[in-house]
Design a protein around this nucleic acid. Structure first.
Lengths: 211, 211, 211, 211
DNA sequence: GTTTAATCGAGACGGTACGTCTCGTCTTCCT
DNA sequence: AGGAAGACGAGACGTACCGTCTCGATTAAAC
């Protein structure tokens, strides 16, 4: 999975010096590094600029504020999430749970995700950015997993399209929510045991959605 | 539910003028009010002090920083959560889900919870504070609900105490996580329909935990 | 030379616990010590209280502010100035110049004198306090020296009383002013050589005042 | 007399936005104004910044503290001192005495001079700043006056250069010291009568320095 | 090969909030 | 009643970042 990180409405003016592509990646790298070291609240634009060997102006030319910069810097981490076919729905779910947990163990990911979500409670635009950059991307995994399970005959095909969508959303929130909450709010580890227990609960539950 | 808010390691020294109890509550009220109006990032200590009719020093004498102040200010909101006996496990779960969702619709609660969780990813002490002030409190509801269901005969009594605890934790993270994620990350409403679907999924899943 | 340091209108009321006399001297000692270590601007009432093993309240009960406290604390230093009879007017003058210079070499004296004078440029009451506590005391030395010189026949007796007073004032300002200015503004040392030169200049000048 | 006020070790770096020259003079003007109104101790950096229409940071970028700012702001007042040729040494001395006294009647000058001298008793750097910004400037007047008197034949030319310098210093401290002490310590006016008396004393004394 | 125009770095700018400090007062308990 | 202890309202301190701005110096496409 890959996608262009084109933050600000680039003036398509022909003439003039073009923006440095190196700068962009240097900035995003610096942002992630700073995030790990300092956390969200201690991270400053000036520091990121210095680390990236870039002027503050260059940052502001591309991102309007800290939140947007961090979303872009971190979004790429969520692209790593994949759904390798492990042979059964149960294995697939357990796999994605552990994979997501591993991602959230990384300080830059956990810090950034929560910080950005927190910021978004007051910022509609940021909420949208999170949705497209992170949420929808993850939701695809749910759809993919379901399709695979249906092909395997583990799950029935749903007749009503709307119901199908609603169920996918529900499952997504249950999986992602449980993992995030366990790790970041309850502050307990997500290990094999927990993943197994959770998967058992979820799969049994899934049956009930079909009637 | 009520509990003393004793923020800083209070020197129990006998002598000297005692801290004003009025100030404490005025500050917490002011913090909640400011949080609603301004959100986490615009909330300033100086503003809180002004609103509370109190000097800035008085704030810092009690709380070392914004995060701790906000945790204490918001924790009381979570005390409102209750588990009225609605006659069945299913009704109880649906009730608590909607109640929790209603709480998170309130701007001060949603903003504060996420902001504080975000901050806590870098702050061990804050994490502890959140746990005792918010998490443990909510977890009691799960235990209460289970006990009630067991009394009704809807759920079996668990033989192994450790398993029982693990299951309670799991259920707690699934419920709280799903609601929070739906509301704050997916940014979709938690209505009767969703609550019903979620409850159905959860209850079916619960059966699997007994074997 | 000695004098009671009774700063504030002492309540002569019979009843109640009498004021600690020890406290007074402990405070003045602490003030001088703090002055040497910290200088005027870094000296704080709280610190003085702590050093003196006394509550801040006790300070404020006796002195209304920093300036008055310091004047009282330092005034005693100027009591040390004496005019031993060295046998001639010239020796007397040189002696008092060196003595005054030695006093102003002491950090607490130089710092306090200037600080208090500076403060007094805006404070009429403080100006009065300085005058009675320091200036008048020093001026007596000039009168004493003149009387002695007149007795020796080195100086004529002045007919007009007013002129006599005016001349004493002039000489006082010339001596004290020159020493203070040399030490604190020009920041050059007052040694035997300078004292000799200055004395020569002054004594020659004195002749002119008689016509 | 005029001179550039170059406060802080200015990085002569080529790049970056250059410092505003307007800001510098606006700040110094504001400082003098605030000094007149409020006096040294009530003068705050924030207030000066506001009056100057400048951010507090801009002040701190140029001056490390209040004292240095005030020295620079006030030094310019001492540039006003001049030595118009009044035809005789006696008239010249009396003129400069009255002129200096007039300067010290101005609240900003008297307050600032003393405050800064007081502060300098603990601050070597400030002492140096005062010396170059104020003292040396005034001392030139003494040299100029002597040269003029020598040209008129009122004073002999001094053979030994070192003695000449020492005498100039002595005279400077006597004049400046006497005026300052009379005005600020004794708190008596410097009028025509006093100036005449002082000048008479000084000129008679000067004769003695030649032998 | 100029011109042109947007980029770059550096760093000063007006702001705002921070968390600390000291002030002088007030309140409580203890002697 | 006096004193110590220490909390209180007030407000300045000096620092750190914010996001904007002015600089002179690149840099490439358009002429």
């Amino acid at each position: 999975m890959c996608r262009p990180t084109s933050p600000k409405p680039v003036r398509t003016g022909r003439t003039g010096r073009p923006r440095s592509a190196e700068a962009d990646s240097a900035i995003l790298d610096a942002t992630r590094a700073a995030l790990v070291e300092l956390g969200w609240s201690k991270l400053t634009m000036g520091d990121v600029a210095t680390r990236a060997g870039v002027a503050k102006t260059t940052l502001y030319r591309r991102w309007t504020n800290k939140s947007e910069l961090v979303v872009d810097a971190v979004a790429v981490l969520f692209d790593e999430l994949e759904l390798p076919d492990l042979g059964s729905l149960e294995a697939d779910v357990r796999g994605v749970v552990l994979q997501f947990a591993a991602l959230l163990e990384r300080p830059e990911a956990r810090t950034a995700l929560m910080a950005v979500v927190a910021e978004s409670t007051r910022d509609e635009a940021l909420r949208g950015r999170i949705r497209t950059a992170i949420v929808e991307r993850q939701k695809l995994l749910v759809l993919e997993g379901r399709a695979r399970a249906q092909a395997r005959g583990e799950l029935p095909y749903e007749a009503d399209e709307e119901t199908a969508a609603r169920n996918a959303d529900l499952i997504f929130d249950v999986i992602a929510g449980a993992v995030v909450h366990r790790l970041l709010v309850s502050a307990e580890p997500v290990d094999e045991t927990w993943a197994a227990g959770f998967t058992r609960l979820l799969l049994s539950g899934l049956a009930s959605l079909q009637n």
